[in-house]
Design a protein around this nucleic acid. Structure first.
Length: 918
RNA sequence: GGUCGCAUAGCUCAGUUGGUUAGAGCGCACGGUUCACAUCCGUGAGGUCCUAGGUUCGAGUCCUAGUGCGACCACCA
């Protein structure tokens, strides 16, 4: 308690021990019982589970800080608060990481075999699995670590199976042969959301397909050998080897009569028909489309309509297979493209090549170009799940902040497509489907428990589906699977639905929308009432932070250098709701300056206050009410306003404004003015030597009581955003007589506004005082008066409020403005600096010999011009009858007051100018 | 192609239902060894609130059009 505080805030010695203590005392742990007994309202957030192999990046830093602010604030409000942490097994991402490690040993997963490989991944996950969670601890997050979950935990796996079986039984899960997004590197199917379109500069190739037999018509172009041909345009010429038709629009006059004719597919010799289909856009390319059902989703649909076969010409690795002509077999798809073009050109079958920009889908995990591929996969029928999720947002049962995300969400649901959920991976939840291999049986078994025999034929030759589920198939259950579902646990009853979800917009479809669907389907209730959508973290050039660009910022490095609080304040204050946060990775000092400076300021202001307060207990403000001085009443009033503002901002998810409001109060009001104003009152001996010792003691007592009260309040307001520094200083506050204090700010109560302490008189008086000091300083700077030179100031027309403040704070004014004498005067003489204050007073500083008349005159003229401009505008407004009759009364009244005051000020300035000229 | 968002100080952004003389942080300039803090203190410069119309007594804020960015969605091969 009594060790001196260092002038620099040393976060390293403070943060880790405090965090350990909070955790040990169980402050972060939620108690379902208190909710179920009706003792407390719950407040629950589930963390967006980071990938188990990931390391903390600034996106986590931002997102988790925002969650912690909400959680800590609600906890202080007395809610039973649960912030449930955990990690995601991240199917493809994790499998890729371990496969890369194996590759370094020169092995593939196939060398190990499935079982050994999965064990290897588990080993890796056990080793690294808690890294990211420890990093989240380092930024101060108050998660309930006793409830940490992993999407591959047995309980969560059970929920996954339950969901699969229920959906299957309901007919919402089916297996089928469709075109899916295939990653030839990861060797797995992907969902539509996992295929990321990227604008790509490509080519549009115009190919000539000769007619197989003679056709009528002179208008058709002909090859040198006399055969007529049709031109088709494609971006992927290599797929022509799998063409089964050419389609044209039946309305297209150019081609209508050709429907039914046959073409000879070059390089293969196959005969393919020309079909008519309204899908074809006559405007694009030549208006004739090659149809490749096995390698394009549209062609696949078109082929179904026309009963055409699909010819798959590629292997899973996207090399050409045995269905391609021998010359192309084994070639990679892009190499094949070149060869096909060469071959066609050789036969004069390549018409031309154009540049063409189009969106090419890439694997969201490895960025390989997706190959649309025909294969048998499992799907979820989404339409029936989407309807209730749409209704939930339309009826306001789930709300998005910022609101605009509602439309994005609804648009996606309105156009939802079935979800491909099977992945050809080894790491993940195995699909709970078995096939009976018994002769002539072929039963498909979908079961919660592993079956031992076939329920149809009784045979035991069962084979489980080799595929695993999309990793998001477990994440979408996160808000309730983590609470024990499908068991009807206490946690589930107490903490579902959750209250708020905090997530970046890039996983709106992947995760947020699907959670809402799952919550409604399996619990009949939205999983959370509010979705707080955060922005992304970008670098100063606006690029998303990423490993490959090397433009990332390591939050732990920031914590090490400036402390968690500096990091937290910077990101909270810098991230307006829903907008991206820009940070310069090349200059951390600058990027994190707001938090760094503020933390230091808090530390020093706190240190100074504590030094003055000493160790002894102070009296409660209520006990010294009669001794409170103007400044005390002012700061107490301001505190109440700050409490109200901060709370309102938090309630509306304007966390940045909340942070700024606290900063403004702390720095611009408490530190800059109140601390300066009370300084003299803590020098009792000095004050007492003036005569009235008893009065000096009482004044000091009042100041101490107020200071402790205000610091206590502001540390509480500060705590959700800057938990460490606020707690460290708060604990050192002297005891207040007759009051119990909570053991920690973590569990301290959130302050309430105190209307009884709001004091318009004190606010106006101290406000006028501040203006006086600032104007004096400004004149000093304007006239280049040396800082050390003491001034005499004269006040004319000083209103009662200002006199009150000047009398109360004469000593402080002398010090803060370096003024030796303050005189109330009714006239002024001689040269000097002159200003009209908003409070109505006139300030005059005699400066004979320093101020030259010409200069002062010029300044006054400028001032007069400025003021009369405002006056004219105000008067014209008041002259407008419409304004006077229609504007709210208080606005008009305010305008009238303003006009009167401006008129008065202008008048005085004019007189002063006259006297100067005379 | 569709939808949405953004455009305010050198930079990053606030500005909540239209209503005092449009704000903050950083940066910049000038001045400061006042016993909490130079990660500080003081003072200051810097804005036709993208453009053009409109609604209104009143527009940074609402409407329309345009320009420029950005994002998301989408089957033009």
């Amino acid at each position: 308690m009594s060790e001196p505080l260092s002038p620099q805030y040393n976060h390293q010695s403070i943060e880790a021990p405090l965090y350990r203590e909070w955790e040990e005392r169980g402050y972060f742990r939620a108690d379902a019982g208190r909710v179920l007994r009706g003792e407390r309202e719950p407040y629950v957030i589930v963390i967006p589970p980071p990938n188990v192999t990931s390391v903390l990046h600034m996106g986590h830093g931002l997102n988790n800080t925002l969650q912690d602010v909400l959680i800590r604030w609600r906890r202080m409000q007395g809610r039973e608060t649960l912030w449930l942490p955990g990690t995601d097994h991240a199917g493809i991402a994790t499998q890729n990481v371990v496969e890369r490690l194996l590759a370094q040993e020169g092995k593939t997963r196939h060398d190990l075999g499935r079982e050994a490989f999965v064990e290897r991944v588990w080993e890796f996950v056990r080793q690294t699995g808690s890294t990211i969670l420890d990093q989240i601890r380092a930024i101060g997050c108050s998660c309930d670590w006793s409830r940490t979950r992993f999407t591959l935990d047995p309980e969560l796996s059970r929920a996954v199976r339950e969901v699969f079986v229920r959906l299957y039984e309901k007919g919402l899960i089916y297996r089928g042969n469709y075109i899916i997004n295939w990653c030839p590197r990861c060797l797995t199917a992907l969902s539509d959301e996992e295929a990321e379109p990227e604008e790509t500069q490509g080519k549009l190739y115009y190919l000539r397909y000769p007619f197989a037999s003679a056709v009528q018509g002179d208008d058709l172009p002909r090859l040198p050998d006399g055969r007529a041909y049709l031109v088709v345009a494609t971006t992927r010429p290599e797929t022509m080897l799998g063409d089964v038709a050419v389609a044209v629009n039946p309305e297209d006059e150019r081609y209508r009569r050709l429907i039914g004719a046959e073409l000879e597919l070059p390089l293969t010799g196959r005969r393919i028909p020309i079909v008519g289909d309204a899908f074809v856009d006559p405007e694009f390319g030549t208006g004739a489309v090659k149809v490749t059902p096995a390698h394009d989703p549209n062609d696949f649909e078109l082929a179904r309509r026309h009963d055409l076969p699909a010819i798959d010409i590629m292997t899973p690795q996207a090399t050409l297979n045995e269905n391609a002509p021998p010359a192309f077999q084994g070639l990679d798809r892009f190499e094949a493209r070149e060869r096909v073009i060469q071959a066609l050109r050789g036969q004069e079958l390549l018409e031309r090549i154009e540049d063409h920009t189009h969106a090419v889908p890439h694997c969201y995990r490895c960025d390989t170009i997706i190959e649309p591929r025909l294969s048998e996969q499992w799907f979820v029928r989404m339409r029936p799940l989407a309807e209730p999720a749409l209704a939930a947002s339309r009826e306001g049962r789930v709300r998005f902040t910022p609101e605009r995300w509602t439309r994005v969400y609804e648009h996606w649901l309105e156009n939802i497509r079935d979800w491909c959920i099977s992945r050809q991976l080894w790491w993940g939840h195995r699909i709970p489907v078995w096939y009976c291999r018994a002769e002539g049986c072929g039963e498909t078994i979908v079961a919660r428990e592993d079956p031992t025999h076939c329920p149809k034929c009784g045979g035991t030759a069962l084979e489980q589906d080799p595929d695993v589920l999309d990793t998001w198939f477990s994440s979408w259950l996160w808000p309730f699977s983590t609470l024990g579902w499908p068991e009807e646990t206490d946690d589930l009853r107490a903490f579902y639905p959750n209250q708020t979800l905090v997530s970046a917009y890039d996983i709106l479809f992947f995760w947020i929308a699907r959670m809402i669907m799952a919550g409604l389907e399996f619990r009949g209730e939205v999983p959370f009432r509010d979705v707080f959508v955060t922005g992304l973290v970008r670098d100063h050039l606006g690029r998303k932070m990423s490993k490959s660009l090397g433009n990332g910022i390591d939050p732990l490095e920031v914590v090490r250098r400036y402390g968690a609080d500096a990091l937290r304040y910077t990101v909270v204050a810098g991230a307006a709701a829903g907008t991206d946060l820009f940070l310069n990775y090349e200059n951390l000092d600058e990027s994190f300056a707001p938090g760094r400076y503020f933390a230091n300021k808090i530390w020093n202001a706190g240190r100074f206050a504590l030094m003055n307060l000493g160790e002894g207990p102070v009296r409660a403000v209520e006990e010294v009410a009669d001794s409170l001085e103007l400044a005390d009443r002012w700061i107490l009033s301001r505190l109440s306003a700050a409490v109200r503002e901060t709370t309102e901002h938090l309630e509306n998810f304007r966390l940045n404004e909340a942070a700024l409001a606290v900063r403004h109060f702390f720095w611009d009001e408490l530190a800059d003015w109140y601390l300066e104003l009370v300084k003299p009152r803590f020098r009792v001996e000095e004050a007492a030597s003036g005569g009235d010792a008893e009065r000096a003691v009482r004044s000091r007592e009042a100041a101490a009581a107020t200071l402790v009260e205000v610091l206590d309040g502001v540390f509480r307001l500060l705590h959700p955003v800057m938990p460490f520094i606020s707690e460290a200083l708060w604990r050192r506050l002297p005891r207040v007589e007759g009051r119990e204090r909570e053991p920690s700010l973590v569990v301290a109560r959130w302050p309430e506004p105190q209307p009884a302490r709001e004091d318009a008189t004190a606010e106006a008086a101290i406000g006028a005082l501040i203006e006086l000091v600032e104007t004096t300083r400004s004149l000093r700077s304007e006239y280049r008066i040396p800082p050390a030179q003491e001034l005499e100031i004269r006040l004319l027309h000083a209103p009662e409020l200002l006199r009150m403040a000047v009398d109360a704070e004469a000593r402080s004014i002398r010090r803060l403005a370096r003024v030796s004498t303050i005189v109330y005067a009714d006239r002024i003489e001689g040269a000097g600096a002159h200003a009209v204050l908003r409070s109505g007073a006139e300030l005059f500083i005699p400066l004979a010999g320093i101020v030259d008349v010409a200069r002062e005159k010029q300044r006054l003229e400028e001032e007069l011009e400025r003021l009369s401009g405002h006056l004219r505008a105000t008067e014209s407004r008041l002259a407008n009858e419409q304004f006077v009759s229609r504007a709210p009364a208080e606005v008009v009244a305010r305008e009238r007051e303003k006009a009167a005051s401006l008129r008065d000020q202008c008048e005085r300035l004019r007189r002063k100018l006259e006297s100067l000229t005379a």
